[in-house]
Nucleic acid binder design. Structure first.
Lengths: 353, 353
DNA sequence: CAGGAAAGGACTTAGTGCGGG
DNA sequence: ACCCGCACTAAGTCCTTTCCT
């Protein structure tokens, strides 16, 4: 038989091999495997002395429970999958670590998956991959339009995402910041400063977040009784913000609401190159409140979103889904906060051509 | 018996339950489990007809191999753990996605773990956590000084990190960009522009990367026969760069080598506030080449590092370690590239007080 | 009837749940 | 109350058997 393995385990020198099994511990402590299991899992009905003896054996043998064996029998992996866009954009990454820590606290490990573009095909592939890995739920964040997920691909797997899915899936919750309200707050701020012609530099409209912010801007303009100014679409990068700003006609607008901070930075640079002062001649509002926003040449007025709160909420909802606890809502929208700095100022002269 | 399970599996309607087992497929196709295993794993010695019939059963039952069972018997999880610093700093995150994609290509899944500060304790905890999760190797990136890892904690686990470990561990490879050479290139560039008094704004010196860049600057100065200018320590943030720049005496220096781009941005802003023109009165070189570096008010001269290459190399080395293939070196340093933009200019007047 | 491809069956992996003592 | 032993989880491995020239 393979008692030899036991022998090797118990005869090991200073560095115990990582191969100690439950049965090795049981043999070493002179109890049954079941008893060791009880001790390891902190279950009751073990005498303190026995418990201690087992613990000692665990330590001396360097025993570590085998996750695979445990998962096999309990049907639980305590793993959740994260599908995110492969880019170092601030938004997707900012929430990442909070997500991991929230998952950790909840007793789950995070398995990371990236997609280039969240097409249905790529998403399905990512989900298959995670499913094969045995994750118990999935969080989809980052670049996503409305998700078109074939329900069959999910196979009833709990999902939390920042974007809604096309078909109302049963095990799905949306957790996102209230992009629309944030955008409206930005417009309101500009309106209060006297701006009437407000342009928008949008993010890529394949992103749900970009659409939401544009629609929020549109809605804000309408609410204020204003004619929406021109819209230019960028790709979130400073570069695209720079280009977008160049295409904006100074005569037409006195302020721009930009869909994220990095594009706003590029835009401010473009305006400066054209001889347009920010905020003297042009007010700019960004979105995100990236850490360096306050330390730009022109400290940026922006809409802050709380990525930490979003991450924690996402994990909480997902875990509830996984553990079949009742959930209250299927869509949760977190508030934003307008941070006023120096890139916005009141209009001195309202010169409309 | 549990034939009932089989029955449920085969009688399922449009949406097959995710519970189909290998034996269910075998029963459905009228073959042995071993044959199904052969088909699923693309092994030879199965007649094409049989193979096809099995495949059909796999599809109709929605069979998916159980990762836990497979891992248990093969003793392979195909999972690697990533330990990184919980911050949305550009450096650590930039490599993250490349890491995931490289791992994916190599057939491994990435499990994410974060630490606040990479102290020995936190690292040991993270490693234990990953070990318990069954990872086959670990990549440590981000904020790390020289790693003090108790060899016993690792238990012989393959490790790739950006920082060296104190005790030469057997299964350890260092993969990092050549920070020192990058810093020296920056100094050289400033020297060639006529600068002689070059200050340094360092990153937090608890980071190995920060130390390396400072030492590179020191070495570069020495090589050029220059007296090192003042050093101020920041924390990588734009804010700290801003503060650091304020403490620099204009009379003393004509150029600053800053340990990362975000601090450089803060520094440029601070100089401007003090009425010091960049690059007219002061040259600034950053490090990283973040995407927005080119679109700042003053496009930033910086040292670019290739995070993608680093990530790919890290995974490659780790997989070699895991699969017991011979490795050539235990330390790999990747080259950097100096990107010259507008934040550096030649010295017009050398006014030393 | 030797010989090789194709398929089957018992056993193993590391734990946990359930009944019994 | 405390502890033991057996059955069971879902795959894969090794070895054997069957089948077909």
């Amino acid at each position: 038989m393979n008692d030899s393995v036991v022998e090797i385990g118990s005869r090991a020198g200073a560095l115990p091999p990582a191969t100690a099994r439950l049965s090795d511990v049981a043999a070493h402590a002179g109890v049954s495997t079941k008893t060791v299991s009880r001790v390891v899992n902190n279950e009751p009905n073990v005498r303190p002395q026995v418990r201690e003896r087992v613990m000692l054996s665990v330590v001396t043998l360097g025993y570590r429970p085998n996750a695979a064996a445990r998962a096999l029998v309990t049907q639980r992996t305590h793993q959740i999958g994260l599908i995110t866009t492969a880019s170092s954009l601030y938004g997707p990454t900012a929430g990442l670590f909070s997500l991991e820590q929230a998952a950790w606290k909840a007793g789950y490990a995070l398995t990371l998956t990236t997609v280039r573009e969240p097409s249905e095909g790529e998403l399905a592939e990512a989900i298959r991959y995670l499913l094969a890995r045995g994750v118990e739920g999935v969080i989809i964040s980052g670049a996503t339009g409305v998700l078109h997920l074939a329900p069959s691909a999910l196979a009833g797997m709990p999902v939390v995402s920042t974007s809604p899915v096309s078909d109302a899936a049963p095990n799905h919750v949306v957790v996102d910041t209230d992009q629309s309200m944030g955008a409206r707050a930005a417009v309101r701020h500009l309106y209060d400063l006297g701006h009437r012609r407000i342009a928008h530099i949008a993010g890529p409209l394949s992103w749900h977040a970009a659409v939401q912010r544009r629609d929020g801007w549109l809605r804000g303009m309408k609410d204020a009784g204003l004619e929406p100014g021109p819209v230019v679409e960028g790709d979130w990068s400073a570069k695209s913000g720079h280009e977008a700003a160049f295409s904006l006609d100074r005569a037409e607008v006195t302020a721009v609401f930009v869909a994220n901070d990095h594009m706003a930075m590029g835009a401010i640079r473009a305006f400066t190159e054209k001889g347009i002062q920010v905020p003297g001649d042009m007010s700019v509002v960004g979105f995100d409140d990236v850490p360096e926003a306050a330390y730009q040449m022109v400290p940026l007025t922006t809409v802050r979103q709380d990525f930490v709160a979003g991450a924690e909420r996402s994990v909480r909802e997902l875990v509830q889904l996984i553990e079949n606890q009742p959930i209250e809502t299927t869509s949760i929208y977190l508030p934003t906060e307008l941070i006023v700095r120096d890139s916005t100022a009141s209009v001195i002269a309202l010169d409309t051509a």
